[in-house]
Design a protein around this nucleic acid. Structure first.
Lengths: 105, 105
DNA sequence: CCAACCTGCAACTGTCGAGTTGCACTGATC
DNA sequence: GATCAGTGCAACTCGACAGTTGCAGGTTGG
């Protein structure tokens, strides 16, 4: 899903800090404040990144008492990978066809 | 290849205009000037985008007489997709493990 | 040789996004 | 109920990047 919006996902993944956040979340759900303790950026910066990640469906908020923990959605990553693979395959196919035409077949 | 630099590839793919360029190149190799005729941006803007795409190995320059045509490298796209898929799978695996721990197994 | 075309470099503008600080609000704890 | 930790909102700075225009350098064709 999030089908019409592939590019924003890549834009979200095109930032080192967000990968750091994803990596940190990979070791277990965590709140923005908790992440701020581990990463060299402020809590608000992380909150913004989490909003972006949530916007493209890579992350999901979970309320636990008064804090909001975030969880990585691995399936979204896999889905994006699959779609990218499809595009790559389509490209190879089309380029092969063009090459044949160019060679006069 | 281009192994240590996954993030810049995503950053490059996080731009609509660059996808337009890639799509246009998908119909056959073309020069920056030729692309400028098809897309609603100036030739220099396209030249910069092509430089970015070349920098991350998604595109390859080919000199034809006095012009420089660019060609899409589909394999780079596929390779990126595969690495993303690996990461997604790794994530799913780790998250499953964490879930088991959290459930007291 | 001259003209036309394509490329490349440089300077400039404008916008978007990353990051910061400060403050107000809410919920849990004693 | 007062306090404290956590979140959320808003304004601000700053740097990177998309896009533009202008001009210089090369290469091909007449």
């Amino acid at each position: 899903m999030t089908s019409g919006t592939l590019v924003p996902v890549f834009a979200a993944l095109g930032d080192e800090t967000r990968w750091s956040i994803l990596a940190a979340l990979g070791e277990g759900d965590a709140s923005a404040s908790a992440l701020a303790g581990r990463l060299p950026v402020s809590r608000q910066a992380i909150a913004k990144h989490l909003a972006v990640l949530q916007g493209v469906g890579l992350v999901e908020p979970v309320r636990v008492g008064r804090e909001v923990r975030y969880r990585v959605i691995g399936s979204q990553l896999s889905a994006t990978a699959r779609r990218l693979e499809d595009i790559g395959a389509e490209w190879d196919r089309r380029l092969a066809a063009i090459k044949e035409i160019a060679e006069g077949l």
